[in-house]
């Protein structure tokens, strides 16, 4: 086992959506004394790039993207336990779906992509109140709130996050980014909820957050 073989095997596993095999490859790599941080850099990150390219090319269904991200997430969780010194996160973000919105596939994808990109992600899950987003962001000193919605009316209500950020004078410290189908269907919608930006997909979310908060 070397990093190149591991990378190839892990990618094949992702494409086959074989979750058990994905776990096993990581265990085998660690058993072969490959350094965990090297596995993250040379196996998990390239695998994520491949998933990302497929998403950008729209040649993969959302369900398959989600399962691939789950495999990567499981690998990452295992590897982070094995690194000698936990990596210092680039920044912290808070993520969740809008109140009344239980459509969480996209949110999970974004959370995984952000973690692989080196961010600390606090995932509030489904149906999150606007105030909860802001309170958690303050509590964990997050630099960005990522709010996702699938429904038009739950998406519209996200404007409340902007209102709270303004009221509490947090607009300079915490950026507000939205994503989800309604924002993709109407590319001007994000301005209606007065977000700082929208992300079209998980890859775009990473790039958008990096740009907005100025981390590499």
């Amino acid at each position: 086992m070397n990093l190149e073989i591991c990378r190839q095997q892990f990618l094949e596993t992702l494409i086959a959506l074989d979750q058990d095999r994905g776990k096993q490859i990581i265990e085998d790599a660690l058993a072969a004394k490959l350094p965990a941080e090297e596995i993250i850099a040379h196996v998990v990150n390239p695998a994520m790039d491949d998933v990302s390219a497929r998403q950008t090319n729209l040649d993969i269904t959302l369900s398959r993207m989600y399962i691939m991200a789950r495999i990567v997430e499981t690998a990452l969780n295992r590897l982070l336990l094995a690194v000698p010194r936990p990596p210092v996160p680039r920044a912290t973000v808070v993520i969740g779906t809008a109140r009344g919105d239980y459509h969480g596939l996209g949110r999970r994808l974004v959370a995984t992509f952000m973690r692989v990109a080196g961010f600390k992600v606090v995932d509030l899950g489904l149906s999150v109140e606007n105030r909860q987003f802001v309170n958690m962001a303050v509590s964990v000193k997050a630099q960005a709130i990522l709010a996702s919605a699938l429904l038009v009316h739950t998406a519209e209500e996200l404007v409340g996050i902007r209102d709270i950020l303004r009221e509490r004078k947090l607009e300079n410290e915490i950026k507000f980014i939205v994503g989800g189908a309604p924002f993709n269907f109407d590319p001007e919608f994000w301005t209606q909820v007065r977000a700082d930006a929208m992300a079209r997909n998980a890859t775009d979310a990473v790039a958008t957050v990096r740009q907005l908060i100025g981390v590499g």
Partner: peptide
């Protein structure tokens, strides 16, 4: 069901 002023209801919880 949880009602909204501007759209159809959602589930209160799963």
């Amino acid at each position: 069901l949880m009602y909204f002023r501007n759209g159809p209801p959602s589930l209160g919880k799963m």
